[in-house]
Computed example of a mutant assay.
Amino acid sequence: MAAPAPHPPRIEDGIGAALRDLRQSRGQSARWVAERAGISAAMVSRIENGLVSPSITTLEALARTLEVPIATLFREARPQHSDYTLVRCGEGLKSTRITDNHRHEYVNLALHSRKDLRFQARRVTLLRDSGPPPNYVGHGVVFVQALSGEAVYLYGKQHFTLRAGDSLSVDAELNHGFVEVITPEFEFLTVQAERP
Rank of each mutant, 00 (worst) to 15 (best):
A3V: 03
A5L: 14
R10Y: 02
I15G: 09
A17E: 11
A17W: 03
R23V: 10
Q24L: 15
Q24F: 07
S29K: 07
S29I: 14
A37P: 03
V44T: 06
V44E: 05
V44H: 08
S45Y: 07
R46C: 00
I47Y: 04
G50Q: 06
L51H: 15
S55V: 11
S55N: 00
I56E: 00
T58N: 08
L59Q: 00
L62Y: 03
L62I: 14
R64V: 01
L66E: 10
L66G: 03
L66A: 07
E67L: 01
P69Y: 01
F74N: 08
F74C: 12
E76Q: 15
P79G: 13
D83L: 13
D83I: 02
Y84R: 09
T85S: 08
R88W: 06
C89Y: 07
E91K: 04
L93R: 14
L93F: 14
S95Q: 12
S95V: 09
S95R: 15
T96V: 13
R97M: 14
I98M: 12
T99C: 04
D100S: 09
D100N: 10
H102P: 05
R103V: 08
R103S: 14
E105D: 14
N108E: 12
A110I: 05
L117A: 10
F119T: 04
R122T: 08
L126K: 04
L127N: 10
G131E: 09
G131F: 03
P134N: 06
N135H: 04
V137E: 13
G140D: 03
F143G: 05
E150W: 00
L154D: 00
L154E: 04
G156S: 03
K157A: 08
K157I: 09
H159A: 02
T161G: 00
T161K: 01
A164I: 06
G165A: 05
D166W: 00
S167Q: 02
S169A: 02
S169T: 04
V170S: 00
D171W: 02
G177Y: 07
E180L: 14
P184E: 11
P184S: 10
P184I: 09
F188R: 09
L189S: 03
L189W: 01
Q192V: 13
E194P: 00
E194W: 12
E194K: 11
E194C: 09
